[in-house]
Design a protein around this nucleic acid. Structure first.
Lengths: 249, 249
DNA sequence: CGCGACTTTGACAGATGTCAAGGCTTGTGG
DNA sequence: CCACAAGCCTTGACATCTGTCAAAGTCGCG
């Protein structure tokens, strides 16, 4: 994508349309939102804890982590965002950041002003509803993370995380042998799963020896998708990948 | 509250107003929403996994838990709801329940039809925004739960949970000696914190012996609020208890 | 008064964390 | 093209927190 791309927000519109219906006019409104591209280096916070933001961030390329605070120094990543995710759409209605956003690899984001997003939502109820729905899906993912971290052992936690990334990245078209970009370190994975990097390392080795998944070259290499979902106790329903499921009643 | 109460949704309006601004007309629209009261016995699911709902549930009295699924039989509560919480406002935009709702004690709820909520949101952008904001706050709580379960030890997890309930229930006016209704069993607390009931029991005993909190009579008895927040590594910012913090920018 | 649900205990097991050291990649600059 | 540094991965030995199992005690409701 060049910086001069006339419709850099097309992937955002696509994501909205995957879960919500929007008229042609509403779709155009999304595409017309102002967006300022920015490149973020690895390990740099681009939204700091407590900061009041005036824009939301859309991931074009790279990987982003949301870091929860904990005074004793332990870090916990509460959410990961891959390309085509609007990282903090919720900041439109709650602009004070209560967690930090950090690039886990070199990342390109688009900054979209709150005023523009709010104006679109106020003008078109369907857009407001679509934004609301996106936030609800993010919450569903968080909810699943609570289960993951609270009730699964290391092996299942890691497998579940990798399944989630695979589905969010490829839709449900996962098959043995596919590779999914995932430039996170083992320490990052530890912070996502509430484990230590040492234990992540050992668990990853055993998942690899079992012929289930391999992680190298900043990619997830799926060797046995069925085994992976079994190991991770994974059911993708919560990701709301199909629009039908969220249709009006 | 009698079943004939003309404005049973007043507590809902109050909660919305604590974080959002609504005009007199908008406020009246909230109060005029149809609401059907219902009493739920302890341990009864009133929203089942996978069910498509056509109404949201508001807690008038009692305690509600949202249960995450996990095939190996381990239960995890991903959210608790106390009186004055709208438990599943998010179901308005995602009606297929991907977690079950269960009464943890005898509970009175109000069922509010999605159609009415959606109509209000479509007619008044400020109401749509207020609903959206409530869902975002729920997500912030979930995010904090990920940190709690992922990175804190048993003592801190439980203390943090109790601090959260205290603040959500009493606002920030917590002081030593106050009592907060919390009719959950130790097994429920275990399911909220990702622990076992045996370990919860032991940890609760030690918190009690340290003179920090006592749990009996279905209430939290705060003995040392400062010590409790310290033990739980608790910072209430994420609860968005003050409207100022979420004001437009 | 009695049943069922909840709490409490003890002994023991196992998963995960801690610490510390060494090896490997990768990117950078000479 | 080589050398170096920084970050990342890997390993081993050991510690500890939390889970498991099973039984007994307590409380509250009918």
């Amino acid at each position: 994508m060049s910086l001069a791309d006339p419709t850099p927000l097309h992937p955002f519109l696509d994501k909205l349309l995957s879960r919500s219906d929007l008229s042609a006019e509403e779709q155009q409104t999304i595409l017309d939102l102002p967006a300022r591209p920015e490149q973020i280096e690895t390990n740099r916070d681009f939204v700091r804890l407590g900061e009041r933001t005036d824009h939301a961030c859309f991931v074009v390329a790279g990987l982003v982590g949301r870091f929860g605070q904990s005074r004793n120094g332990n870090r916990q990543i509460t959410a990961v965002h891959i390309p085509a995710d609007m990282v903090d759409l919720h900041s439109v209605v709650a602009p004070d950041a209560c967690s930090a956003l950090q690039a886990l690899s070199v990342t390109t984001i688009l900054r979209v002003p709150h005023v523009a997003l709010r104006a679109a939502a106020h003008r078109f109820p369907a857009i407001a509803e679509a934004f609301w729905r996106e936030c609800v899906v993010d919450a569903a993912v968080l909810s699943e993370w609570v289960v993951n971290v609270g009730r699964r052992n290391a092996r299942a936690r890691i497998a579940h995380l990798l399944c989630e990334i695979a589905c969010r990245s490829q839709g449900m078209a996962n098959k043995d042998g596919s590779s999914i970009p995932f430039p996170a370190t083992q320490t990052h994975i530890a912070d996502m799963t509430g484990l230590t990097s040492v234990h992540v390392n050992r668990t990853l080795q055993s998942l690899s020896q079992e012929g289930i998944v391999d992680l190298y070259n900043r990619q997830i290499h799926v060797r046995d998708w069925a085994g992976m979902t079994r190991a991770g106790d994974f059911d993708p329903t919560y990701l709301w990948l199909a629009k039908a499921a969220s249709r009006m009643n």
